[in-house]
Design a protein around this nucleic acid. Structure first.
Length: 258
DNA sequence: GACGATGTTGGCAC
DNA sequence: GGTGCCAACATCGT
C-alpha cells in the first residue's frame, strides 16, 4: 500500500491520538517487531509524524516507529482479524496493526532508529539545486535512483513511474546524464504528483485504506502505473511495461527518452 | 492446482 | 558504488 502520500494520509488520520496513553500492547505475531516494544508501555503519545515512508509516534520518552511494508495498516477501532498482529490499547480507544503479508515492522527506541536517520531528504522539501546536485552525482538508472530511500525518502513504485512520465524521462536513463532542464522538470513533477496524491488521500490499488478505513482516489489519476497497453494520455502510443531494478515499470516509449 | 504478479526492504555475491 | 538475485508473506488473476 504505502508510499509517501498514503503514509502521509494515514498520519493525518492518526492526529487525534496526540495526548493518548498506551496502556497495553498485545503482540500476536512477533515477526513484525524489531526488538522489543516494552519501552513504549505506559508512555503518552505526544505527536504523530511522517519521515519518508515511516510513521513516527513521538512519545513522552522515545519513539514508536512503524513501517507499513506492502500491506500494513494502522486502524482505529477496526475489526480484529487473523492478520491483526499488534493491538495497542489506549486510555481511550484501540489502535490495531494489521498486515497480511507481514513485511511491515514496528520498533521502539529512545532515539530515532538509524534506518530513519539514514533516509535521504524529503521530496517535498529538497530544493532544486540540492536535488540536481545529488542526481548528477549518481550513475545509476533513474528509476532505481528514485526508489533509493537514501536518495529521496518516500517515493515507491507508483510515484516513481508517475513522476518520470510527467517529466518525460526514460526509467533507464542514466542519472548523471540528465540535463539541468530535465532535472528541473523532474523536481517539479515529483512535487506535483505527490501533492496531488496527498490531496486525493493516496492511491488504493488493492486494499489500501487510512486509519479510519477510507480509500484514496489517486489511482484514478495514474497516467502510466498499471496502465500497460492503454493509450498514453500525451501521445496515444501504448503504455509499456518492463522490469527496471527488478520492479515492474510502466512508461511511454515515445514520450520518455533516455 | 500452478504460476506470476503485487505497494517494500535487506542481505549477499560479484 | 552499483547491479542482480533472492528472501520474507498472503492474495489475486490467468
Amino acid at each position: 500500500m504505502p508510499e509517501l502520500p498514503e503514509v502521509e494520509t494515514v498520519v493525518r488520520s492518526l492526529q487525534s491520538l496526540a495526548g493518548r496513553r498506551i496502556q497495553n500492547i498485545e503482540v500476536r505475531q512477533r515477526r513484525i517487531l524489531r526488538g522489543k516494544l516494552d519501552g513504549a508501555h505506559g508512555k503518552r503519545i505526544v505527536s504523530v509524524t511522517r519521515r519518508g515512508k515511516f510513521i513516527v509516534f513521538g512519545l513522552d520518552v522515545g519513539y514508536l516507529v512503524v513501517h507499513l511494508g506492502m500491506t500494513g495498516k494502522l486502524l482505529l477501532n477496526g475489526e480484529i482479524t487473523k492478520h491483526t498482529h499488534a493491538i495497542f490499547t489506549l486510555d481511550r480507544g484501540v489502535l490495531l496493526y494489521t498486515d497480511s503479508r507481514q513485511f511491515g515492522r514496528i520498533e521502539y527506541g529512545r532515539d530515532l532508529p538509524e534506518r530513519v536517520q539514514l533516509l535521504g531528504p524529503e521530496p517535498l522539501q529538497i530544493t532544486f539545486e540540492d536535488f540536481h546536485a545529488a542526481l548528477h552525482a549518481r550513475k545509476t538508472q533513474m528509476k532505481a535512483l528514485l526508489l533509493n530511500q537514501r536518495f529521496l525518502a518516500g517515493l515507491g513504485n507508483i510515484y516513481a513511474d508517475e513522476a518520470l512520465f510527467r517529466a518525460g524521462i526514460h526509467p533507464r536513463a542514466n542519472a548523471s546524464r540528465i540535463s539541468r532542464a530535465r532535472s528541473q522538470k523532474l523536481h517539479s513533477a515529483i512535487r506535483q504528483v505527490l501533492t496531488e496524491a496527498i490531496a486525493a488521500k493516496g492511491s488504493s490499488i488493492s486494499d489500501y485504506v487510512d486509519s479510519e478505513g477510507c480509500k484514496g482516489s489517486f489511482q484514478d489519476e495514474h497516467l502510466v502505473y498499471q496502465r500497460t497497453g492503454e493509450p498514453c494520455s500525451q501521445c496515444g502510443a501504448s503504455i509499456q511495461r518492463t522490469l527496471v531494478a527488478q520492479r515492474g515499470t510502466h512508461y511511454c516509449a515515445k514520450c520518455q527518452k533516455k
